[in-house]
Design a protein around this nucleic acid. Structure first.
Ligand SMILES: [Zn+2]
Ligand SMILES: [Zn+2]
Ligand SMILES: [Zn+2]
Ligand SMILES: [Zn+2]
Lengths: 167, 167
DNA sequence: CTTGCAAAGATATAATATAACATCCAGAGC
DNA sequence: GCTCTGGATGTTATATTATATCTTTGCAAG
């Protein structure tokens, strides 16, 4: 049984804070440096439960600064965060989202709402990784050696289904 | 049991020809116009079993022309071909590949070789669509209403595994 | 102190994709 | 045949995403 998460009416500051704490622990344990910039980018990515573009991060990062940041600044930070498994890239949106379970490496499985863009990661949930096995098996049976994967489902989140029914 | 397809040493002209024939039939049956340009773009996408970028198509299309084609020309043709299910977009590569089973609409499942880029579509094969069911079920259990999906596995194709063993 | 190295800054440019408007052309109806 | 019409294509400009390259900074080991 999968727990249903409601993103409306939740204390998102807690989400952000927890993510930053865990990121710091993980990087410390691995001898990696979660610098101020990297931490700030991670915080901006966690700004919502919707994937955020690199240039959105760039804009947020630059807001109120005398000199705006340049693209490589953001991309480098995002590269680091991806390497550490702290964020995932959503290929279908050219955007990034914080990983909800960065402790162990995993293939991300994402449910992306076409209407509100709210995106939920399933991989870490009960049965998440297991649900990939049939595809893996099929790939194996063709002699393919899988090293990475990308699973993105698009559709309507529960909240947006209700809205649609109202209209 | 899945049939193993070898892309080395096959008569690829036959692949291309068959794909164009079927595309013509499908478009005719649907009252859609497979114009000369669209057909040419489809042929260029089928040029290999590797995903091809829009600008690669553009370059091939423009070769030997007095005035080179412009990006919208190619993107419009690719949009049409995608709508008709004749090509798929590979999000992780920003590239396009001919669909090997365009008769019925389906979610593409792709095996992408990291070394030679040869890409194989599994969705249409025995068990292909079925292999998505566990993920679908998991999505359903969270109340998500799935409308589309994207599955891309990266790794090594059989041929490149052998090469690696040689080295 | 200085030397080395990773991170970040700065500049330029590449690669991918779309907006907006003009023109063409095949087929329907007269 | 002629004209009207709508989809397809041509054309120009620009938006969006990402990277290459070189310089500077900051920190810590020796
Ligand atoms: Zn994750
Ligand atoms: Zn939604
Ligand atoms: Zn072939
Ligand atoms: Zn290969």
């Amino acid at each position: 049984m999968t727990t249903r998460i409601e993103y409306t009416n939740h204390d998102h500051d807690t989400c952000i804070h927890a993510a930053l704490e865990r990121a710091a622990e993980i990087c410390y344990a691995r001898g990696q440096r979660l610098t101020a910039l990297r931490k700030q980018v991670l915080e901006l990515v966690w700004h919502s439960h919707k994937p955020v573009g690199a240039y959105d991060v760039l804009a947020m990062l630059s807001k109120g600064q005398d000199r705006p940041a340049a693209p490589p600044t953001v991309y480098r930070a995002l590269d680091f965060l991806q390497e550490q498994g702290l964020v995932h890239r959503i290929a279908s949106l050219n955007a990034f989202i914080g990983c909800s379970c960065p402790d162990t490496p995993h293939v991300g499985i994402f449910l992306i709402c076409e209407k509100c863009r709210t995106t939920r990661e399933l991989a870490h949930e009960v049965g998440g990784e297991a649900s990939l096995l049939p595809i893996q098996d099929l790939a194996d049976s063709t002699g393919f050696q899988t090293r990475g994967a990308l699973v993105e489902l698009t559709g309507l989140c529960p909240a947006c289904q209700l809205e649609k029914a109202d209209a």
